[in-house]
């Protein structure tokens, strides 16, 4: 009698909703998602080649490779973490699987991420690095980042309902991450004793892997290929479990 709800249709409808709402009243529309990283690249390149001198070659490209996975993570995590509160009216009044809200927000950000990665590939070629066969690692590495973000978004979205401070925790963590992910410096410059922190941080690991793939035509090291899936899938499981345990009482706190 009751047909199984079509979760894919719900997901695509919610993603479409966010997308339309975001761009309907903007004249530049989706170009913002390209413009934003380019502006950051110009600023960072100015600071780290003119103010501080860096000897990293092709610095704008180097920074862009760091910025794009980082931007995706911060935006998707922050919007995902607020998503249940942002959709409180929906959660209180309509019954549907709650997980689709944070997941749809993350997947909506994936659209921008994919566009930005395409832009990045054009930059890589324009800077004369060329296409290499290690690019095949990209879907694996970036896919793991998406899984990681989904877990983080689910977990923090659930916490956010009970503790409204969660929003600020996420914001502060994102500010710290900007410095603690090798965006404007390279992983090789990190002193040996601090490297474990970077290796266990999926965002840093993804940036490091992308630089190896694009700039050195090298595969990500084996250790990274073990730790990244472990931490990403672990975060996903933890986030999912926390969310499904807490979702039953969402309506009481919204």
């Amino acid at each position: 009698m009751a047909a199984a709800p079509d979760h894919l249709y719900i997901l695509s409808s919610l993603i479409g909703k966010d997308f339309k709402i975001r761009y309907r009243n903007m004249s530049l529309g989706i170009f913002w998602s390209l413009l934003n990283p380019l502006i950051m690249v110009i600023v960072l390149t100015y600071v780290f080649t003119k103010v501080f001198s860096s000897n990293i070659p092709n610095y704008p490209l180097f920074v862009l490779i760091g910025l794009i996975p980082f931007n995706f993570f911060t935006l998707a995590w922050a919007t995902g973490a607020n998503s249940i509160l942002d959709n409180a009216a929906l959660v209180k009044k309509v019954l549907f699987r709650r997980e689709v809200i944070p997941v749809s927000v993350v997947l909506g950000n994936v659209i921008h991420f994919v566009i930005q990665v395409a832009l990045l590939m054009i930059f890589v070629v324009a800077f004369g690095e060329g296409v290499n066969r290690q690019w095949l690692w990209l879907p694996v590495v970036l896919g793991l980042e998406i899984i990681f973000v989904c877990g983080m978004a689910l977990g923090f979205a659930a916490l956010d309902v009970y503790y409204r401070d969660t929003r600020y925790v996420v914001e502060s963590a994102n500010l710290v991450l900007f410095w603690m992910v090798p965006i404007f410096y390279s992983f090789d410059q990190v002193p040996q004793q601090y490297r474990l922190f970077y290796e266990l941080n999926p965002v840093a690991a993804v940036v490091h892997a992308c630089r190896l793939i694009f700039l050195d035509a090298a595969a990500p090291p084996d250790s990274l290929l073990i730790k990244l899936p472990l931490v990403s899938c672990g975060a996903f499981l933890a986030g999912w479990t926390l969310f499904s345990r807490m979702k039953k009482r969402f309506t009481d706190y919204l």
Binding site: A2, A3, P5, D6, Y9, I10, S13, L14, G16, K17, K20, I21, R24, N25, L90, V94, F96
Partner: peptide, 16 residues
């Protein structure tokens, strides 16, 4: 911010 038609689609999807 969505049109009436878009809202109908979204609502129906959410209701399964």
């Amino acid at each position: 911010d969505l049109t009436g038609r878009e809202n109908v689609h979204l609502n129906a999807a959410l209701l399964g």
